[in-house]
Each structure stands twice: as C-alpha cells, then as structure tokens.
C-alpha cells in the first residue's frame, strides 16, 4: 500500500508543477506556421455548412471557407469535430487553433473568443409542419417551439438574443412561445416536428438554409413568414494572438473582395449570403 501512496503523491506533485507552467504561450500563429497545419474545429452535423459527404469526408460551406483560409495563410487544414458546447466552453489549450463553424459573435462569446472576421450572414426562419394552420408568426403565440440548444435560434425563441456583432442588422421578437424545447441539432428538432403538427412541436426556429434542405429531403415542413433575424457568422479564435487574428481577417477580407466567398456561398446555398441585404 505504500507504493500506492507514493504514486498518488507523485501524480499530485506532477500535476502542480505542470499547472504552474503557462497553459498557452500566445503565439498560435507561430505554432501553426511551424507545424504547417491549421487545426480547425467544426461541427459534423450541420449540413450544408459542415457535414460528412458521400466520400465520408467533411464537406460544406464552413469547411470550404476554412480550407480557403488555410490556403491563404499557406498551411494545410486539419479538422476536428468536438461537440458544440465543448468548443464554446473555450480553453482550447492548443487542441485546435481556429473555429469555423458558423458561430455568431455575441458579446458573451467575445469574452472568450476573438472574432477576426464575419464571413457570412444567415437568415434565421421559423418552420412549421405542413399541416399547420398558422399563417403568420403571431399564430404561434403560446405554442411549443424547438431549437438547437445554446444556439442563437434558441436564444431568439427565449427572447434572450443579443446580436452585438459589428454589422448585425436590427431585429425584433415576433415569436411568443409557451415553451422552448432544446435539441441537440436542428435535425432532431425537425424530426420531432415531422411527427405531426403540434404532436411534440408546433414550430422550429432554425437557419433558413437548414429548413430549405429539410424540405428538399422530403420533411413535411414549411417556412412561415419572413426571416426573423440575420445572424452574422464569424471565424472564432482564442484571445491572445493579434497577429493570428489579423492574418485571418486579411484572408477573409481578400476572399470577400475577390468574390471567393460569394462563389462558395452560391455553391452551397444557391444564394450569396456573404453580403448583408
């Protein structure tokens, strides 16, 4: 039993020593350039922004944008797919360098992250079952609404949304739900909606592109009303490396300027979302 005790003491002292070291040197860019690879975190369940395509590889708008940023910095891009709440928890400790996953640059998030560049704007819209009798958003007063957990859509439904990123268009709350159900992804929310009008859900707040995609895939749902807000979506990195931030900002600016972003957006959405309307 004595060795047992010794081992524990050893582990504890080791932990303390390591904890005393600075967790991050701040030079993310140096690390990226030295390694020649940019590690990008993104979601694997967020078509058409990022998903696993028929070749079992990550693909989508966000993925293309990330690859393009990597190309312009001059490094290879490698993807990791941790859960959304793990990404937004911050403290990446070098596991990945950049997040390109349609993150809305809210003020709260800005406490943890730098947002070097907004690269597109998504209209958020409300979907209902195709049998729904609702014709306008006000018909959904007192109903049950679903949204992806910790997303801006959920925040909007709960009237807790702050779009404080530069250039975010103003919006107003047009939805007065009785209850907001949180889902792991928009698809699981659509799955509950497809069961029937009002069976589990009366409506889902999600991005317009995801609603369009679901309709295309044969989900018995439809968009109702105009988009409720336009969400600016940005590349996120951790605080502490202004050079890295500037490099990403330059890359995205150049992509906007030479039309690359617009082309990518049309490729994936059929519409150019890279400019504010």
């Amino acid at each position: 039993m004595k060795t047992y005790l010794k081992l524990t003491t050893l582990a504890a002292s080791l932990a303390l020593t390591l904890a005393a070291l600075p967790a991050q040197a701040g030079a993310v860019l140096d690390r990226v350039l030295a390694a020649g690879t940019l590690k990008v975190a993104t979601d694997a369940n967020w078509a058409p922004q990022s998903f696993v395509n028929s070749n079992n590889e990550l693909d989508g708008f966000d993925v293309d944008v990330a690859k393009e940023i990597g190309k312009r910095i001059g490094v290879k891009v490698e993807f990791v797919t941790p859960g959304w709440d793990i990404i937004t928890a911050g403290n990446w400790v070098g596991r990945w360098d950049m997040h390109v996953g349609s993150m809305t640059p809210t003020k709260k998030r800005a406490e943890i992250f730098d947002f070097p560049a907004v690269y597109y704007y998504t209209p958020a819209a409300v979907a209902v079952h195709k049998d729904s009798k609702a014709t306008s958003l006000s018909d959904l007063d007192g109903k049950v609404v679903g949204a992806t957990t910790t997303s801006t859509f959920e925040a909007y439904a709960k009237k807790d949304l702050t779009l404080d990123a530069a250039g975010a268009p103003p919006f107003e709350y047009k939805l007065n739900p009785k209850e907001v159900h949180s889902y792991e992804s928009s698809t699981t929310a659509f799955d509950d909606l497809r069961i029937g009008d009002g069976v589990r859900l009366d409506a889902v707040v999600s991005s317009q592109p995801s609603i369009v995609d679901a309709v295309k895939a044969g989900y018995p749902i439809k968009q109702i009303g105009e988009p409720v807000f336009y969400e600016p979506l940005a590349v996120a990195i951790e605080h502490g490396d202004p050079e890295f931030s500037a490099k990403i900002a330059d890359a995205v600016k150049a992509m906007k300027a030479d039309g690359t972003l617009g082309t990518l957006s049309k490729k994936w959405y059929g519409v150019d979302y890279s400019i504010v309307r």
């Binding site: 694997a44 369940n45 797919t81 941790p82």
Partner: peptide, 23 residues
C-alpha cells in the same frame, strides 16, 4: 466520447445520414 469529437460508431451513426436526412 462522441461528444468530444471521437469518430466512433455512435458519432458516425448520427453524422453520416445527416446531409441526406437518412439518419
């Protein structure tokens, strides 16, 4: 462990059919 982004069976099960809504 799929929540931390490990591509194991459950992760793929939830991911592969996503795009085409064949999950």
């Amino acid at each position: 462990v799929s929540v931390i982004g490990v591509w194991e069976l459950m992760f793929l099960a939830r991911t592969l059919g996503q795009k085409t809504f064949q999950h």
